[in-house]
């Protein structure tokens, strides 16, 4: 079983989404220029890395069995129902954006807020690009991605995912003692592979 690593260029930017993450329903000139300025500065700090592997899964009731590890989650079981195989992936936009967030949280919180919003939008955009890329590559459809912490899927599953995907070495993603990810703008998720378009 092989772990693949992919690097992407910057996905298209959804400015509305960034503003939403920044708690801003509409942007006046000052906010818009703050956002553009931060996007410019963040561009060099962002990387777009994903590592993943394909796993077979058997679902029995709430039990999701991936062969080398298994756990109980009714929500994930429902999400993966009818998918014999899944893509398990970890994605990150890197430590650079964390550095910027940290830096500005000490000297200019408005910029920190905006950097935070940009990071949140960027990691979601990366996951979208990766999933549609995989759909094309496999000629199959993927179910909506499902991450630890959603519904009844416990965060403790992160430990298994990080080990199984060898993420510290592959994409520089590690877990802290509270099961939070570093870099913080990272996502791990299961995506069921299905051949029917739903």
């Amino acid at each position: 079983m092989i772990i693949y690593t992919k690097m992407y260029g910057a996905p298209p930017i959804n400015r509305k989404e960034i503003l939403r993450y920044a708690g801003c329903a509409e942007a006046d000139e000052a906010t818009a220029s703050l956002m553009e300025d931060c996007l410019c500065e963040a561009a060099d700090a962002l990387v777009y890395k994903v590592c993943y592997r394909e796993l077979s899964v058997s679902i029995k009731g709430e039990m999701c069995d991936f062969g080398t590890f298994s756990f109980s989650s009714g929500n994930l079981a429902g999400n993966l129902a009818g998918c014999p195989r899944v893509i398990l992936f970890a994605a990150t936009v890197g430590v650079g954006i964390d550095r910027l967030i940290h830096k500005y949280s000490r000297i200019a919180p408005s910029r920190a807020l905006m950097m935070q919003a940009i990071g949140a939008e960027r990691i979601e955009a990366l996951c979208d690009v990766f999933c549609s890329d995989m759909e094309k590559e496999m000629g199959a459809s993927l179910r909506p991605r499902f991450s630890p912490g959603y519904g009844d899927l416990p965060l403790s599953v992160q430990k298994d995912i990080i080990t199984l995907l060898d993420t510290p070495k592959r994409i520089g993603l590690s877990l802290n003692d509270s099961l939070l990810m570093s870099p913080t703008k990272s996502v791990t998720a299961f995506a069921g592979i299905t051949n029917t378009t739903e």
Partner: peptide
């Protein structure tokens, strides 16, 4: 009153 949003509040505070 929600006529000013968080980024603007912060810029003013700074």
């Amino acid at each position: 009153k929600k006529t000013v949003y968080l980024p603007q509040l912060l810029m003013s505070a700074e």
